Amino acid sequence: MFYPNSPQTSPQLTQIPYGQQYAMMQRQIQQPYHPFATTEPQARLYPYHYQGPIQQEQGGFITQQSTAASPQYVQMRVTPVDQSIMSGYPNQTANGSSSSSFNYNIHPQQQQQQQQQQQQLRHHAMPVGSVPLQDDRYRKQLIVNYLAPDVTSTDLHELFSRFGELDGARIIYDKQTNMSKGYGFVYFCHAEDAKEAVERMSGYEFHGKWLKVGYSTNPLNIVPSNSSPYVHAGSRGAAG
């Protein structure tokens, strides 16, 4: 039997160049792979992502010199942007860049009308829970959420009447099932009393439920100042 490094198959040491006398086997001759043993700084910083320098080929596509990437890492192929796409944008300079302001050559009167329309939209648009300043009635009506099913309009009136005089209180019921929808409205005579009720009743436990109280901004629920107070009856038909 002959071994790869046996004296019968191995040459004389004098015939082997210096430095390879003890590297006779194939696994010894093959050098191990060192990912950080390279002179390129990109490979030292990113050993798993770097795959060699990027070269520009004919046709405008950018390719990489090395083989496919590892399945664990996804390499994105980048193509140059066609400058003709950006030619339609206004205020574009000769080098292809555009300024931040756009001039669509709008007539001054049209621009003024658009600004007025935007101001009107901001004036009428009102986020949930906010209180408008032009109508004091919005500051007097509250919406009470997360009410228990057994709470009546009379219970709601008695709960909030300790903060001040009320114009009314009612629970909203479903017309088909005649069941409470879980929320109601309270109408105060003074805005200061309503503000105190919002601050003190939010998070209050009532009939096993934690109440959420806020201003009601729905104009359909506003009680006119010259109208008669609501009837605080315990029956659902009268309260709904």
Score class of each variant (00 low, 15 high):
196 E>K: 13
201 M>C: 09
92 Q>N: 08
217 T>W: 02
220 L>A: 05
208 G>Q: 08
24 M>Y: 08
151 V>C: 05
83 Q>I: 05
192 E>K: 13
85 I>D: 05
199 E>P: 07
68 A>F: 11
23 A>Y: 06
100 S>F: 06
151 V>F: 01
235 S>H: 14
147 L>F: 02
129 G>D: 04
230 Y>H: 06
138 Y>D: 02
22 Y>L: 05
168 G>C: 00
143 I>L: 02
43 A>D: 10
84 S>V: 06
155 D>L: 13
17 P>Y: 04
17 P>Q: 10
206 F>A: 01
6 S>V: 09
72 Q>F: 12
188 F>R: 00
149 P>L: 14
238 A>E: 04
4 P>Q: 11
19 G>E: 12
197 A>F: 01
179 M>W: 15
32 P>W: 04
10 S>A: 10
38 T>W: 07
136 D>W: 12
28 Q>D: 04
166 L>K: 01
133 L>F: 15
183 Y>G: 00
205 E>H: 14
236 R>Y: 02
2 F>P: 14
70 S>I: 06
166 L>T: 03
196 E>V: 13
189 C>I: 03
187 Y>N: 00
181 K>N: 07
93 T>M: 13
73 Y>R: 15
172 I>E: 00
41 P>S: 08
176 Q>D: 03
152 T>N: 05
211 L>P: 02
51 Q>P: 13
37 A>R: 14
146 Y>H: 07
7 P>T: 10
164 G>H: 00
202 S>M: 11
97 S>H: 10
153 S>H: 15
62 I>F: 06
150 D>K: 15
106 I>V: 08
157 H>Y: 15
57 E>P: 08
229 P>Y: 14
124 H>S: 07
156 L>G: 00
234 G>Q: 09
40 E>A: 09
17 P>W: 03
234 G>W: 13
174 D>Q: 12
54 I>S: 12
225 S>R: 10
69 A>F: 05
63 T>G: 11
106 I>H: 04
121 L>F: 12
3 Y>Q: 14
213 V>F: 01
88 G>P: 09
101 S>I: 06
122 R>P: 04
53 P>I: 04
207 H>T: 01
13 L>V: 12
198 V>P: 00
73 Y>N: 15
234 G>A: 10
57 E>G: 12
226 N>Q: 11
116 Q>I: 13
96 G>K: 14
165 E>T: 14
125 A>W: 15
108 P>F: 09
19 G>N: 06
131 V>T: 07
3 Y>R: 14
52 G>N: 14
212 K>V: 07
126 M>Y: 10
89 Y>D: 04
30 Q>E: 07
62 I>D: 15
68 A>T: 09
238 A>Y: 15
29 I>R: 14
209 K>S: 02
218 N>P: 01
82 D>A: 12
214 G>T: 06
138 Y>L: 03
57 E>I: 10
153 S>V: 03
192 E>D: 08
226 N>L: 08
96 G>R: 14
198 V>Q: 09
105 N>R: 09
83 Q>F: 04
121 L>S: 09
5 N>W: 02
40 E>M: 06
203 G>M: 03
189 C>Y: 09
195 K>W: 15
33 Y>V: 11
235 S>G: 11
199 E>K: 15
68 A>S: 11
64 Q>I: 03
222 I>A: 03
147 L>I: 09
214 G>W: 07
79 T>A: 15
202 S>Q: 11
16 I>T: 14
199 E>S: 13
207 H>K: 11
189 C>Q: 10
45 L>Y: 09
240 G>D: 07
121 L>R: 10
222 I>H: 03
6 S>R: 14
226 N>K: 11
104 Y>H: 12
23 A>N: 14
63 T>R: 14
32 P>Y: 05
14 T>E: 05
171 I>A: 03
214 G>H: 07
47 P>S: 05
214 G>I: 00
